[in-house]
Write a protein that binds this DNA or RNA. Structure first.
Length: 275
DNA sequence: AGCATTACCCGCACGC
DNA sequence: TGCGTGCGGGTAATGC
């Protein structure tokens, strides 16, 4: 479920609950969730670390750790990517593990942080250098680095279809399938439109649309659809996503669905015309 | 060569 | 019961 607004919501929710807590023990319930070190090494390294801060970069959640053992060197970060079906839940430590729990961090204060992931696509990294995982990401769409001028130039530096390009995390980091469809509709641009054919005015519209849908998603605490995640209400405000056959809220034409780059794609055929 | 595109893959649960 | 689908992204093959 998580795109940028959902991860942002999770980070914001967990931050006050996690800061200052110490990780007593890691219960690793599925080894392949880890790309970094070995399971044994992971458990050993994470034990006794204190959570100093909880942040987000693109769709990654970052727990900034610091060892309480004096002089034991490096500060580690725990990076979590929820992929399609992952979620992070804070529970009482006495609660029984739930189905699909992949990693449980037992914390000081009687709480546990559970990484639950039905489809097992999610990943967790423990690293002293987050850049080795985050280094290739494009700019944050809600940062000052992302501007209409940057977007226009970047679009023209490529010759790719808009939707696959916007989904490419090395181009721009944080958009997923829902928010991309929503942004393209808001900007009145067709997902197959070639990036270097976009005018300055259209790049500006796309910039505004991307920021607008992400901000709205965050304001509504994300979108929670299917059986995954909970709380967010942005799913009640989709303009095109999951609205095949329903009227466009702008012009009334019926929303169409087709496949672009193996992803379901939703457009208004009247608002988003491919020249 | 260097891009861009396409196909396929990874567990699992859900809707039809 | 069976089959298509998916809030993500990596890899490999193929195409310009």
């Amino acid at each position: 479920m998580p795109e940028l607004p959902e991860v942002e919501t999770i980070a914001r929710t967990l931050r006050p609950q996690l800061i200052g807590k110490t990780i007593r023990e890691a219960d690793l319930r599925w080894n392949r969730t880890l790309a970094a070190p070995s399971p044994r090494k992971f458990k050993e390294l994470v034990k006794g670390q204190q959570i100093k801060e909880v942040t987000r970069r693109a769709k990654y959640l970052i727990l900034h750790l610091s060892s309480l053992r004096s002089g034991s060197g490096q500060a580690f970060s725990l990076l979590v990517h929820l992929r399609m079906s992952g979620d992070l839940l804070l529970r009482n430590s006495t609660t029984e593990p739930a189905p699909h729990d992949r990693l449980i961090l037992k914390l000081s204060g009687g709480k546990s942080l559970a990484f639950n992931d039905t489809r097992k696509f999610g990943r967790v990294w423990l690293t002293a250098d987050p850049q080795e995982i985050l280094g290739a990401l494009g700019p944050e769409p809600l940062s000052a680095e992302f501007t209409p001028a940057w977007l226009y130039t970047a679009l023209h530096a490529k010759r790719r279809q808009l939707k696959p390009l916007l989904l490419d995390q090395t181009f721009l980091a944080g958009l997923g399938n829902i928010y991309t469809d929503e942004a393209l509709h808001l900007a009145k641009l067709h997902p197959l439109r070639l990036s270097d054919s976009v005018s300055r005015r259209q790049a500006e519209a796309l910039y505004e649309a991307i920021q607008s849908v992400l901000r709205e998603g965050i304001r509504r605490n994300g979108a929670s659809i299917d059986w995954v995640y909970r709380g967010g209400e942005f799913q009640n405000y989709f303009r095109v996503y999951d609205r095949e056959g329903k009227p466009c809220l702008v012009c009334g034409a019926l929303i169409q669905k087709f496949v672009v780059g193996q992803r379901g794609t939703h457009i208004c055929p009247n608002c988003q015309v491919l020249k």
